[in-house]
Design a protein around this nucleic acid. Structure first.
Length: 192
DNA sequence: AGGAAGATCTACT
DNA sequence: GTAGATCTTCCTA
């Protein structure tokens, strides 16, 4: 289990490619001396000025400028009371990111359940707002790299997921023709 | 200063 | 399946 953080180069590709390949990787949140871990089971890709559903669509603002910046850094922003956890991903001089929509809890489940009390385990992290509460994600993480082994949030490498599905993105007002949501087939922690 | 929108969630019918 | 809550950010005045 000596998995290392995914390198910067992993994120220096198109957001849709990164979103697909992030499935099965391990998301680690270090907080209060504990490591809260989950396997990524659902993601969505967002592009830049050409993507009407993207936070980058209406141009660079203070809150979204990390989408133009170095890949492999967190982009955290608020919608409807919840913090959305993204990682910046794009080709050189590009814009984009990947939204973490669901993880399967692995470590630190007790602490996650304190952060977000639920009656069944499946409700703990099966949604972008849900997983942020469970993992203690706030805007303090915005701009931090996920490639630093000792950082407050890291993505560790793991074998690729072979049995995956794609669909249109969920909850967006105006989507692109491409299917940009990716999830592990049959996994119980996928939202929806 | 005020209103509206939003990549959501929960509860209820 | 639909409605309402909730809060950060943006846009207009």
């Amino acid at each position: 289990m000596a998995s290392k953080p995914l390198p910067l180069g992993f994120y220096e590709r198109r957001p849709d490619v990164v979103a697909r390949e992030l499935l099965g990787k391990t998301l680690v949140r270090r907080i209060g001396g504990e490591a809260l871990e989950g396997v990524v089971v659902e993601t969505e890709a967002y592009f830049g000025l050409e993507d009407p559903a993207s936070r980058a669509y209406r141009g660079m603002k203070e809150y979204n400028r990390v989408m133009w910046g170095e890949p492999g850094r967190l982009f955290v922003y608020n919608v409807h009371k919840y913090w959305m956890l993204n990682v910046v991903a794009h080709e050189p001089d590009g814009v984009g990111g990947v939204l973490f929509r669901a993880v399967e809890p692995r470590e630190g489940i007790g602490r996650m359940a304190e952060n977000r009390p639920v009656s069944s385990l499946r409700e703990l992290t099966s949604g972008p707002g849900r997983l942020s509460v469970a993992l203690g994600v706030t805007r303090e993480l915005n701009g931090l790299p996920v490639t630093d082994p000792g950082g407050p949030m890291v993505v560790l490498d793991a074998p690729p997921v072979l049995d995956l599905c794609a669909s249109h993105r969920i909850g967006v007002k105006e989507d692109l023709p491409e299917e940009l949501r990716f999830y592990v087939r049959g996994n119980g922690f996928v939202s929806g």
